[in-house]
Write a protein that binds this DNA or RNA. Structure first.
Ligand code: FES
Ligand code: FES
Lengths: 154, 154
DNA sequence: TCAATCAGGACCCGAATGGTACCATTTGGC
DNA sequence: GCCAAATGGTACCATTCGGGTCCTGATTGA
């Protein structure tokens, strides 16, 4: 399916909600009602996001969460990486030596390039672009697949 | 993870193997030994690919599979769609009316745009680009996020 | 006729995901 | 000083999904 996890989707919704109230801290339950999600789930998502530094947390009474950086500085790629770990289409793309066919499979390098292209595309979309009302036309800049084939033999 | 399924990865490997022997039909077991994969798995993959028209099959003795089109005409997006169904980052991106938050969530449209951008990137990489020995520098053309916000208010 | 080969399922098992609950820790207010 | 509010962290369970195998039937060439 090439899908992101549901929790990642929730994360974007919660972050978008947070982006609409800059500055002040908002509690997890408060955000949950605003986003109409389960409080427990929102809490879980926020914990993960806090570990990644995308949101800042304050504990204790009157605590809560707020964005760790400006909405423009948080990309969709950041959210995905925070929630699901490094972006990689295939398993063997991330670590070398795990795949049985590395020796005779010339595809690996290409998967890596494709992954980089997608990641670049995701990085150029920021939270500010997702927040309704603050929309502005966004153009993903020319995503070029780095053709580092040395001698382009054929 | 934003990963593709393993079977999809296998599909690209098998297709790449097929691309190296144009014309003649190759049996599933034959392809399995070439790609060093489980014959049963390769068979399963090929069946799926045949349904999508990416490979042509011939039954009976001396039967087998061959590419349905030229390697240049088969994109990575085609393979993913054939193996995993329509590309969509989120669930609510594919069908309208399933998500509870559609009413007040302005994110959905943006996810769709991001999905289109990724799909475009995947479509511009063909099988021919993946086959080792036939490599040629590939540039994913300027993937532009269609900013169809009517009045770009801000 | 027979053997090879694809077609189309059914089936099973393990892993991952979504979701929930519990308890410790911190912090502000009374 | 104490309590309520709120996060931090972990552990847990049910369900789903993906990977993988196997079986039976249909087709085709020798
Ligand atoms: S499939 Fe893993 S290296 Fe090619
Ligand atoms: S999360 Fe489903 S429409 Fe926004």
């Amino acid at each position: 399916m090439l899908r992101i996890a549901k929790l990642t989707d929730y994360a974007t919704v919660v972050l978008a909600t947070l982006a609409e109230r800059p500055g002040a801290h908002a509690s997890a339950t408060e955000l949950a009602t605003l986003a109409r999600l389960e409080p427990t789930t929102v809490s879980k998502v926020l914990k993960t996001l806090a570990q990644a530094g995308l949101v800042e947390s304050r504990r204790g009474a009157a605590g809560g969460y707020r964005l760790g950086r400006a909405p423009e500085a948080i990309s969709v790629a950041d959210v995905i990486v925070a929630m699901e770990g490094p972006i990689g289409l295939t398993e063997c793309q991330l670590h070398v030596g795990l795949c049985h066919h590395e020796g005779h499979c010339g595809i690996r390098g290409n998967w890596q390039k494709i992954g980089v292209a997608i990641e670049t595309a995701l990085q150029s979309v920021s939270l500010a672009d997702l927040v309704p009302g603050r929309r502005r036309p966004t153009a993903i800049p020319s995503v070029t697949l780095p053709a580092e084939v040395p001698g382009a033999e054929r």
